[in-house]
Design a protein around this nucleic acid. Structure first.
Lengths: 373, 373
DNA sequence: GCATATTGTCAGGCAGACGAACAAAAGACC
DNA sequence: GGTCTTTTGTTCGTCTGCCTGACAATATGC
């Protein structure tokens, strides 16, 4: 039915009149009238006003209505839990940031409890305000596997020991790096791009792959786990699993910085943010370390480029926005492999939350409109 | 129109009766009659007999008819040019192997001339035999880029200086490793698999990726070019482009074998096939080299697994079918990364030709049935 | 007030598919 | 052999989803 297409159009492109939607979808006026009448009857859309063109009769403007419901998006990060409640057309209804008592590498009891609390608070906050709750999306700092896959060795089950989802509400779990990649595609520098890679450089290192417009999860939900890349990878050396993570994470970087800081370089940088700031301020020692790190990341990106040839790599995470990084990474990667464009993310700390929000909205639409695409 | 679906069904599943097709496609008898009548009128299908069930009236059996036409598939390999002419439902009409005078690393004048000669010969051979020629597929040992991409630094244009395709015939170019991957999916050990990687280990090393059922080509047509993987990849070493290829190819392997062959190991193996045969026969020196090579490949496969998590890796190429390889590669890859199954190809030297044939048939179907999927 | 342009609705029609009924062909059973 | 049952194939009416064309309902500008 064309009503589905009309609703999708309103969700994605925002308020519009019947002639506008008919134009973009290639539908006739009678069909548009029937579709909007049906959607309005269901409460999924509502008239929001009338728009006057240059000439002629005013056109009624429609938008997603309260009956379409809303979603809750949660970014369960290592230092903060961020919650967003939004309508299907992404009007923010509620948002909260919960600071964790300490920084966590993995999904654990404290994060799970915080997520459960925040979701329950959000549910009560927005009750009956903008229609039914359709989906809850949670971005996790762990590998996420589907219901038919092997759950051993994952930590996503910890969450559900703290949290019972309401009946009839879809739950969407996704890895946080994958979520950031989705956000880059819909709101960030990769907008409209069909194929690209998002590389997160922070405490841990990870990658999210969007190929031909769809997120690559992989057979075990482990696609993009480049922290597990073979390393060292050279004749005569015995590789160890997970060494890239241990070598490229900010802790290892700061360890090298502390061990290698020149006596005349001033105080040793306290953390990665400090290092980046002083490199951007022009301090030679800090710049040298950032440059060296960029070269390492460039080699890593080159490996990913050789495997999937994404054409564009977006750098994110704590170090991803550092000024001199993209150019240097791009230079190294291009020397080692095929042409690739490397840019920094423009989305801030909200990237992951925006991405899981988009995924939750997509799931809600599937539930609302049936299986059809 | 349902006629498209019926024709696709006959192309993919072979001869069938109307009730059978209606069953699989969920179409009613009247619809099936209309569809087959339309297709028969166009000459795309024909009645091939009548099938008697356990009881009741005989059912007419249909199959793809002469009017549907045929395709030419060419594997432009490094030592041979293989040609297959087949109907859309993959009945082999003609096949030829043209041995090249020497082994070539890249697309060059001799290969191009041989391809042009063989295609022209095949065109005249099958003229008016099984309807019009719909598409010509050519598997190339080079990176293949689309018409909208950057053609500099590719060698696919050499071909067209030797060869003018007939009017109205679609030309499909694809990298030979990607073709082998497609063949594994449709005829080989990865049959029915939606996501897997094919790794070719021979003179050169390369990978073809099938993700969610579709071939990943990448932004520059360079996806799977793991010969360009960053190498060496370890702290303090300066990586050089293309070193994996130079290290993992059979020439480098045999160089190490010759340099390192024990005095009491008998005559030095002449080539890779000899090395494999003697390893399978139990000779310790040969086994040790194959094992070492398997470990290297295992590290390489682990890198690919970390990036795309294919779940299944099919080994092919000159060394891919070597007996002890898959288990050893799997063991190394699993230790370094996520669970992955590693198996050897069951298709022989025809893998690439079968793959490009499938791609040519797909293109012919698009041309025949319109843009619809 | 009237011409013109645009939106919105109504009626009719067309394409594609389905279900029900009926005709045709084959084996099963007496 | 005759009849019954089962399956195939066709004819007919219908239904859904959409379009085209005509008409009514606004809006602007002279």
């Amino acid at each position: 039915m064309s009503a589905r297409a009309v609703f999708r159009c309103l969700v994605e492109a925002g308020p519009a009149t019947r002639p506008q939607i008919g134009q973009t979808l290639g539908l006739s006026r009678p069909t548009m009238s029937a579709a909007t009448a049906e959607l309005e009857r269901l409460g999924y859309i509502e008239v929001v006003g009338a728009v006057q063109g240059a000439l002629g009769r005013k056109a009624a403007q429609y938008r997603v209505g309260p009956g379409a419901g809303h979603v809750i998006a949660v970014d369960a990060g290592s230092t903060h839990v961020r919650v967003r409640v939004a309508t299907l057309d992404r009007q923010l209804l509620h948002s909260r940031v919960h600071r964790l008592s300490s920084s966590h590498f993995l999904m654990n009891e404290e994060i799970s409890a915080a997520v459960a609390d925040e979701v329950n608070a959000a549910i009560h906050e927005c009750r009956a305000d903008r229609g039914p709750l359709r989906a809850i999306g949670i971005a996790l700092p762990t590998r996420v596997v589907g219901p038919d896959q092997d759950h051993s060795a994952t930590r996503q089950d910890i969450l559900f020991s703290h949290f019972t989802p309401p009946d009839g509400v879809d739950i969407v779990l996704e890895n946080n790096v994958n979520c950031a990649a989705v956000a880059e595609r819909h709101h960030g520098v990769a907008k409209g791009r069909e194929t690209f890679a998002y590389v997160q450089i922070g405490l841990k290192i990870g990658m999210g792959l969007i190929l031909s417009g769809q997120l690559l999860r992989g057979h075990n939900g482990a696609a993009g786990e480049i922290g597990h890349l073979t390393f060292p990878f050279a004749p005569g050396l015995v590789p160890e699993p997970g060494e890239v993570e241990r070598y490229m994470g900010t802790e290892a970087l700061m360890g090298r910085v502390r061990a290698d800081w020149p006596a005349d370089g001033g105080p040793v940088p306290q953390d990665a943010a400090d290092l980046v700031a002083r490199a951007e301020a022009g301090e030679p020692a800090a710049s040298a370390h950032i440059a060296r790190h960029a070269d390492d990341i460039g080699a890593l990106v080159a490996a990913c480029v050789a495997v999937v040839d994404p054409g564009l790599v977006v750098l994110g995470g704590g170090l991803g926005a550092a000024k001199p990084l993209p150019e240097r990474v791009e230079a190294v990667a291009r020397r080692l492999s095929y042409p690739v464009e490397v840019v920094s993310t423009g989305l801030g700390v909200d990237a992951t939350a925006l991405g899981i929000e988009k995924l939750a909205v997509d799931r809600a639409l599937v539930g609302l409109l049936g299986e059809a695409a």
